[in-house]
């Protein structure tokens, strides 16, 4: 029962994720993409970074690497899969989750703390929170603007598959609280099933008590259930 944290050339949040999971008492190992997904994998995290130098589009190359076929198969068999930041871009490019994360409205790389509101607390990744709860998470991305066809966004919202929205400290979802121009302030979404999710903010960076804020722990606790 070990969570596999994938490593591609250019991943850089892989060890942070393992450290955060370790702190939560969840066994986790780094898995180099070329080695394939170990058979005993109990969960998968596709971590942040700049896989393949963000060539072509962020996440495009990694999404088409053979290990992602293993991840899709594991997801279909019920294994929880979480994509964080570059892992979220990879998840959308691999069609594990809908939409795409593309260039920030500012056209700049943004590294800051943001607030997000928990939109659906009935998933493994948000069960630790209350619906409507506001948590503080860091973002660090140049391509984090959630883009999706309007009809598909309607369906996503109707199906309650938006996990988090960018909001202000009071929980109001406003244009000013949207750091990157994401449609309807979407910061994280679910795939077809609630055990597959991606989000642009970094829960693993606010999970160790030494950092001061531990709001991200609840997301990673999905793997301890």
């Amino acid at each position: 029962m070990t969570v596999s944290v994938l490593q591609f050339g250019g991943s850089n949040c892989d060890r942070d994720t393992v450290a955060a999971l370790d702190h939560l008492g969840v066994d986790a190992d780094l898995v180099w993409h070329d080695d394939g997904l170990p058979a005993e994998t109990s969960g998968v995290v596709v971590p942040g970074g700049f896989s393949y130098g963000d060539y072509l589009r962020a996440g495009a190359m990694a999404a088409r690497s053979p290990i992602m076929a293993d991840v899709k198969e594991a997801a279909e068999n019920g294994t929880p899969v979480l994509g964080i930041c570059n892992g979220a871009q990879i998840g959308c490019e691999a069609r594990l989750t809908p939409g795409a994360f593309t260039t920030n409205e500012s056209a700049r790389f943004q590294c800051e703390h943001v607030h997000v509101r928990v939109e659906n607390a009935d998933t493994p990744f948000t069960q630790a929170y209350e619906e409507g709860e506001v948590i503080e998470l860091p973002i660090a991305h140049g391509e984090g603007r959630f883009e999706i066809d309007d009809d598909e966004l309607d369906r996503l919202e109707d199906d309650d598959r938006v996990l988090f929205r960018y909001c202000d400290a009071e929980g109001d979802v406003t244009e000013g609280a949207n750091p990157n121009g994401s449609k309807h302030n979407v910061a994280g979404v679910l795939g077809e099933h609630d055990h597959v999710a991606v989000l642009m903010p970094h829960p693993e960076r606010v999970s160790l008590p030494d950092v001061g804020i531990t709001d991200g722990q609840g997301v990673l606790q999905a793997f301890g259930r």
Partner: peptide, 9 residues
């Protein structure tokens, strides 16, 4: 279809 374009955008 497989790589160069992302049909979503």
């Amino acid at each position: 279809e497989r790589l160069l374009a992302n049909p979503t955008i």
